[in-house]
Design a protein around this nucleic acid. Structure first.
Lengths: 142, 142
DNA sequence: TTGCGTGCAAAGGTTTTGCATGGCA
DNA sequence: TGCCATGCAAAACCTTTGCACGCAA
């Protein structure tokens, strides 16, 4: 929450608007760059990094811990709806919002029995959804 | 399982042995390099990367998807014990092995109700354990 | 006018790749 | 002998940092 002297600039608005248009999805820095430059914004990569970092600091965006090698993912922080965990498919890249009672009780269990509080804004759980990919997935799952 | 023509070399044994000595812990490429070079192995960083990749392919090691910016983590794949999810503390870095019935039923729920199969070998769930750190953690959890 | 935001260039850290050589089978 | 493993160097990739300038307040 480092909201000291924040100026409201064109680029800030542009990034925020893009996140709002993609509510429920995750965007990488590259996605943001490409999308904004496509619509004629001419925004620097560095600026996107800095804007997203600021927005994460201010609580307007959420940064997901992502697999190494690929880039970090950001999404709008939706204040109104209850916090939830996200599942990410390693095959199709799809993002699933987990918002059910079983999840809540599992989180409660972790907290009460394992003294562990999940960082819901940071955690992506990886696996495979029911998408097409069966061929590519059968490696070492156990 | 790309176990075509694998040669059993000194370096392969050294890396495997180190993982076995650190059963239950996660090691980075750097950890492996340092440890082995300390005991006079003189192993190249590149070789460690390649060995760990091979061992992951062959099912002897597990590579964890880790937070961006820090390095990837590997551990021995323990074949005998039941597969489990891992929790990682963002404060102290500690790793918790989750191996209880509640976890199992949560995973079953994800599979049955959400058609989602967790990659237990890849997923680290981030959060905060009951370690000392309270000051540093209160950012944007929600 | 003050100080944050931005573009540009460069550096930092992790991981991958190419190539010639060494070593296992 | 054939093929994989290794060392060394270099590149690729994502991200961060420094600095001068522009622009919001």
């Amino acid at each position: 929450m480092a909201e000291r002297g924040r100026y409201k600039t064109r680029h800030h608005d542009a990034v925020l608007m893009l996140l709002e248009e993609n509510k429920g999805k995750c965007l990488s820095v590259d996605d943001v760059c490409t999308a904004l430059n496509c619509r004629g914004e001419r925004i620097e990569r560095t600026t996107v990094y800095r804007q997203l970092e600021k927005m994460t600091d201010d609580g307007d965006a959420v940064k997901y811990i992502s697999e190494k090698g690929s880039s970090a993912l950001y999404s709008l922080r939706e204040k109104s709806c209850a916090p939830h965990i996200h599942l990410k498919c390693l095959d199709c890249g799809g993002l699933i919002h987990l918002n059910c009672s079983e999840t809540e009780s599992f989180l409660r269990h972790l907290r009460d029995e394992h003294s562990f509080t999940i960082s819901r804004t940071n955690t992506l759980i990886y696996g495979h959804c029911g998408c097409s990919a069966q061929a590519s997935s059968g490696k070492n799952e156990n």
